[in-house]
Design a protein around this nucleic acid. Sequence first.
DNA 1: AACGTATGCAACCGCATTCTT
DNA 2: GAAGAATGCGGTTGCATACGT
Length: 231
Amino acid sequence: MPPMQGEELRKGPWLEEEDKRLAASVALLGERRWDSLAKASGLRRTGKSCRLRWLNYLRPNLKRDRLTAEEETIILQLHKQWGNKWSKIARSLPGRTDNEIKNYWRSHLRRKAAQLGGQGNYQSIISNAKQDLLTPECDTVSLRSSNGECNKGDSLRTSDDICDMFGLSNFGIVGSPYETRMTDWLSHLSYGPGGVYHHGDCQSSELCFCFPSEDSYGGSWDSLGFLWDTE
DNA sequence: AACGTATGCAACCGCATTCTT
DNA sequence: GAAGAATGCGGTTGCATACGT
């Protein structure tokens, strides 16, 4: 739609005044009909520009801090699975925008992947990130309580138990959409046929809970994409 | 101090898809 | 069901700042 004569559309960085006006208009009219909203607000911006500004900057509950190691791991995992489906990846990271993830990928992760080069090393990035999250004391992947107090025979009954046991709260998972999936999955491992067991070769003298070998649960870390899939 | 380069991020653009009339 | 409008998405660009020489 061409701008009215004498109403040149503005481009470039948003002013604080424009942000306030946009936020007020969205509160009044809702997140839809952006062209109408742009006109009604008196902003000399396109609806498209208003929508983008709202989604990427003004929307409530946006996280402004740097992406965490956990989020980086998720991005790497999901990008491997889905490719450049930024909006899809963003839906699995509450408070993050597709633009932010896309930028982060281009400035951090893509280069990181390129430095190591090749598919095999790409895998190692995920593996390294995984090691940041999980304790590496067993030759199978293991998760241990952050305080090291794993008592043989203890039951994991609730998601809180599981979060406590596995220290999920340390990873920013608690309260996120994947908390339920993660805890469900861990519960399944606890009681399912594969079982969670003390690995005999574990060098730790303490009891630790280890995932079964890849063979016995029929997959690898890569197969766990469903944990993050919110669709 | 001045200049050139690298980096991070916000915003724009064009196209595809979905919605509304 | 068709056409136009609105929205969503991914790629790209431009600018401010940090950093190195």
